[in-house]
Write a protein that binds this DNA or RNA. Structure first.
Length: 459
DNA sequence: TCTGGGGTCCTCAATCTG
DNA sequence: TCTGCAGATTGAGGACCC
């Protein structure tokens, strides 16, 4: 699905339909996660600094992502895909490859088109959102087809036409060619996919190295044998924070690293994993980024062990001048723990303390968060008198709420004091009214779309 | 008021190990 | 026992993707 987050927000909020909607971090260092098509007209796109987006589209609606509802809708859509084939490879919340041939769901162009059309209809019925479908004989081509299909379409690349189709396209069309590789190729006089093929494999390897060179040359010839892999195991778990203002105080840097280590371990444990390599990431005031890592003797999910390793790594980093981002990660994952007994014993007391800290954290956050910060732009609220709505903005002790629901007409706006006792944070409403049992999909409260790129090897 | 967050994969150099 | 070598592992950084 294109503009996934933005289209979920438009489906949730009738007053935003047809309007420029920009979803992303709203802090001073936020970037755009998704811009609706209406916002793209102004030149706004993903990964653009939010400040720049505001200059380009000052009248757009700016919202903070609601990952909970995006995940629910994503689960619904992935469920529909798994009804087609057991081989579903999610790429993100809003995109997945499906091997239709594996399940016998499609065997030729005609059957593939039928499956694609039905899938789009099912996604619309279950979520109220539009999904685009790309059908082709390989993952690369299905991906390109789905890009062509957006918004709200279906494109099939017929076998035998691949080279002619790819040839004139920019090298940037190929997966794995980003800004750096694109520049590299451009400097070598290579601008199109055809020119990659003409340059030859040896030249590509010379320019880009072995792995990238071979892979890119094969892609340019429309050769892509990568299978659809259903179960991908995570290779690392990490958390990171960018701070609104650079941190100069070394003690504060140390505390933040400890906090991130705890968060990382919580995620690790939540996934039932442990890991051997601890990674510290530091982005300095000048945006230079460095990582330091340490590999333990065995995997751990002990917060004390991870905290200590992260602290050791930080000792070796010069942070004078300030840091804008800190991160802690764990890789070398295993689904068991083989802890050094001494470290385990030493860590137990600290761990217990940390867990108590974790339990207390939500309460602590509630206390620390100023009352104004409870009202996050775009998030759902409920008022005793006016019902369900969403926060349009807040500040100066006031919060502005628009009262509307996915199924209503565009609603009215009212302003309250931030501490109004009648106003409370609410759960998102489903985009599509839940149907009685037996209707198949529709168990979730989801609302958004996801990019879907079914693949039909050999079709 | 430039440049998020969570990942994957690749390369290269240094070091370890058999 | 020593040496040389190949391969594995580790650590750092870069590119890319959504």
């Amino acid at each position: 699905m294109d503009a996934f987050y933005a289209s979920v927000e438009q489906a949730s909020k009738p007053s935003l339909r047809g309007k420029a909607v920009i979803v992303g971090g709203l802090g001073p260092r936020g970037v755009v996660a998704t811009a609706s098509y209406e916002a793209r007209v102004f030149g706004v796109h993903s990964a653009m600094p939010m400040a720049q987006a505001r200059r380009l589209a000052p009248n757009a609606a700016y919202l903070v992502p609601r990952f909970g509802i995006y995940r629910e809708i994503s689960d619904q859509v992935m469920g529909l895909l798994r009804e087609l084939s057991p081989l579903v490879e999610p790429l993100s919340l809003d995109e997945a490859f499906v091997d239709l041939e594996a399940a016998g769901a499609a065997w030729d162009e005609q059957s593939a088109r039928l499956v694609g059309a039905k899938l789009r209809a099912d996604i619309r019925a279950a979520t109220g959102l539009a999904g685009s479908v790309g059908l082709a004989a390989s993952k690369m081509l299905a991906k390109i087809a789905s890009e062509e299909a957006k918004p709200d379409g279906l494109v099939l690349i017929e076998p035998g036409t691949e080279r002619a189709l790819l040839g004139p396209m920019s090298v940037r069309t190929l997966p794995g060619v980003g800004p750096a590789t694109g520049d590299h190729l451009r400097r070598a006089g290579i601008h199109t996919v055809d020119e990659i093929a003409e340059a030859g494999e040896d030249e590509l390897v010379r320019l880009l190295g072995k792995a990238h060179g071979h892979a890119l040359y094969a892609m340019a010839l429309a050769h892509d044998e990568r299978p659809v892999v259903a179960e991908r195991e995570a290779k690392s778990v990490s958390v990171e924070d960018t701070y609104d203002v650079d941190i100069h105080d070394r003690v504060r840097v140390g505390l933040e690293v400890q906090r991130l280590a705890d968060r990382c371990v919580r995620r690790l444990r939540g996934a039932g994993l442990s890991g051997r390599t601890i990674v510290l990431k530091v982005r300095r005031y000048d945006f230079s980024t460095l990582t330091r890592s340490e590999t333990l003797r065995g995997p751990t999910d002990d917060p004390a062990v991870v905290r200590e390793a992260a602290a050791r790594l930080l000792d070796a980093v010069d942070t004078t001048g300030g840091v804008r981002l800190l991160g802690v990660g764990v890789s070398g994952l295993a689904d068991y723990t083989q802890e050094d007994l001494f470290a385990q014993a030493a860590g137990e007391r600290v761990e217990q303390a940390a867990e108590e800290g974790d339990r207390e954290e939500p309460a602590e956050e509630r206390e620390v968060v100023p009352v104004e910060r409870r009202w996050v732009a775009g998030h759902d609220v409920r008022h005793v008198e006016y019902g369900h709505g969403w926060v349009q903005g807040s500040g100066l002790g006031r919060v502005t709420v628009r009262f509307e629901t996915p199924g209503s007409e565009p609603g009215r706006v009212r302003t309250f004091r931030v501490d109004d006792p009648g106003l409370e944070v609410a759960e998102p409403l489903p985009l599509v009214a839940r149907r009685p049992e037996g209707s198949g999909a529709g168990t979730g409260a989801g609302d958004e779309g996801s990019g879907v790129a079914p693949v039909v090897p050999g079709a």
